[in-house]
Write a protein that binds this DNA or RNA. Structure first.
Lengths: 193, 193
DNA sequence: TTAATTTTGGAACGTTCATTTCAAATAAAA
DNA sequence: TTTTATTTGAAATGAACGTTCCAAAATTAA
């Protein structure tokens, strides 16, 4: 009996994510999303409820993409320190390739909404917890095989890496010179060696 | 002949800045600004032209405040490295004191508008240029008196400091534990020693 | 082919947006 | 006190906002 959903939900989420990424949440209108997805207003509301919920789904897709990319990197990396390096290189690539200077969707969202919206706040806290846990694990392993020094605890280094990555993403909005950014990564990671 | 301006422009700018700081540019309405300043709508338009221009004036006030604070710190500091440390401590104080978790107005603005608004873009590029120049000077002096190592050029270290500060400001939105943040500063600056 | 169900198109909802308008109030100068 | 210039209050502007509504179109099961 049913007429099944005809549009590609993943594609639509990517299209919506792109608008949110370029303009931010508040500057993005439903009309922008209608234009970007080619969907009808009603279809968007049928499928995603409202703008806020659509944004949340976009955030989750964005987060998952990075989680997948990073998981792949971890498999390839032959040391915890190399793994951390390759995560920074991943962001470096993003920055250099992005000719719209959008920065990081999650970092931008944090800056725009973390102190205003409790649902977003929770999402970001969870994202932070996971990222810190990932780095803590990597630093811990790196210290065990001596590729990372033990001057500081894995927890402390994890926060350092989490913080520097956000700085890196912010810097990347106005600077996309690869050499400068590479030097920045090198200095940042020098600390761990 | 004239009826002179009766309100305190500096106070009004501080009040408006606070709203922009809490809510961001796009989420701040003129009504919010009317409520926060106690001024009439017309008075705001008479005095500041429009929302965008008022925001720009707020940014400039915010920037000047930090420039003044930092100038004072530089006078007191008895070494370039100590000066850099005290700048980080200044931001640490801000973060810990700020119970609204607003982050940095300029960093937030960069994340929200840098890729969308050329006037803002120019302001931010200028702010970046000045900040990098300040750090470059300090690092240069520090390397000359050997309180800062010479593994990297002053330019490279300046970008590192600029970047880590933005990361620090972003982290401060969700984390305001002083010990954690102090450790983060210590690790960040360890690199220069 | 008919019946059942969902998606679509597009208009319409009421609200809020940034900005303008203009007469009344105000205050200093003449 | 009158003149001149500015600020103020409050309403009004038209556009844009997120969201809802519903008949028409579409699709599949019966």
């Amino acid at each position: 009996m049913p007429k099944t959903e005809v549009f590609n939900k993943e594609l639509v989420l990517n299209q919506a994510s792109h608008v949110f990424h370029v303009k931010g949440y508040n500057a993005t209108s439903m009309q922008d999303l209608v234009d970007a997805t080619g969907l009808n207003r009603s279809s968007i509301y049928n499928s995603f409820g409202n703008k806020h919920n659509l944004f949340l789904e976009c955030l989750k897709v964005y987060q998952s993409k990075y989680q997948r990319s990073i998981s792949n990197l971890l498999l390839k990396a032959n040391s915890p320190l190399k793994a951390i390096e390759s995560i920074f290189e991943l962001y470096l690539d993003e920055i250099v390739k992005d000719d719209e200077n959008k920065g990081c969707l999650i970092t931008n969202c944090k800056s725009e909404m973390a102190n205003q919206d409790s649902t977003i706040h929770n999402f970001l806290m969870n994202n932070q917890k996971n990222t810190l846990a990932l780095f803590e694990d990597l630093v811990n392993q790196g210290q065990e095989n001596s590729s990372i020094n033990s001057h500081r605890s894995p927890k402390d280094y994890a926060l350092y890496l989490f913080s520097t990555i956000q700085g890196f993403r912010m810097v990347g909005i106005l600077i996309d010179n690869k050499q400068q950014l590479q030097s920045l990564i090198n200095i940042t990671l020098q600390n761990l060696k």
